[in-house]
Computed example of a mutant assay.
Amino acid sequence: MRIAAIAVVVVALVAIGGFGLSTFVNGRDSASVSTGSGPGSPRGAAEDALGAAGDVGVAGNVVLLHAAEADGPALRALGDEVAGPASPELEEAGQAVIVRQTPDAEGVIALSDTRVLRADSAADPQIRAFVESSLGTTGTD
């Protein structure tokens, strides 16, 4: 009888400890993904001042702005490789890489709805990393 009572107490303590540990771990877990991660920095007023050229349209899209005509083909090839050719359907779904030439861009400016990356040219590997980490994400992810 005494052994059975000790066994019940041990089982109860193990169950309480397991429940407590589980509650502690779950309380510290976060299911959200920070929009502060990935290449680039938070988007600010300077990027908003780009107007229509910097407008991503639907959250999730990525816009690649460039001034030099030579950067256009490489940026379009990157967009086609990562997301497929831009189309109204992809843009509406927030899954498009949109390439625009604008004289306001110095080098290449990669934009999502919440982040920005500035690069000297289309050859910068951070542009691919930015596109891959930002495409399809929104400020609420």
Rank of each mutant, 00 (worst) to 15 (best):
E92S: 15
D71M: 09
A7R: 13
D48A: 15
V116D: 03
N26E: 14
G84L: 01
A119F: 05
E89Y: 02
A110K: 08
V56K: 08
A52Y: 02
F130A: 03
S37D: 12
P42M: 07
G17E: 01
N26I: 10
V62N: 01
S22M: 02
A53P: 03
E91K: 12
A74S: 14
L64M: 08
L21G: 14
G40E: 06
F130H: 03
P88V: 04
N61Q: 10
A119M: 05
A74P: 02
G107P: 02
S133Y: 08
A68R: 15
A4I: 12
E69M: 03
E91W: 04
A45C: 00
A77D: 14
V97D: 00
G44H: 03
S34D: 14
V8S: 13
L13N: 06
G94R: 07
G27C: 11
T35P: 14
P73M: 05
E106Y: 03
T35E: 06
A52L: 10
G40A: 03
A7F: 02
E89R: 05
V131P: 01
D55I: 07
A53L: 09
R128N: 00
G72W: 00
A67F: 11
F19H: 13
G79A: 05
A74L: 06
E92W: 01
S37Q: 12
T35I: 14
F24H: 14
I127A: 01
D55T: 13
S112Y: 05
V25W: 13
A49D: 10
D48C: 05
G51M: 01
A74N: 08
S41W: 09
Q126W: 02
A15I: 10
G84S: 04
A70P: 04
L111I: 06
D124F: 09
L65H: 10
D124L: 02
G54P: 13
S41C: 00
A129M: 05
A105Q: 13
D141Y: 11
E47C: 09
D124E: 06
P73V: 12
G40V: 08
R100H: 02
V58R: 15
D113S: 15
G136P: 11
R118P: 06
E91Y: 06
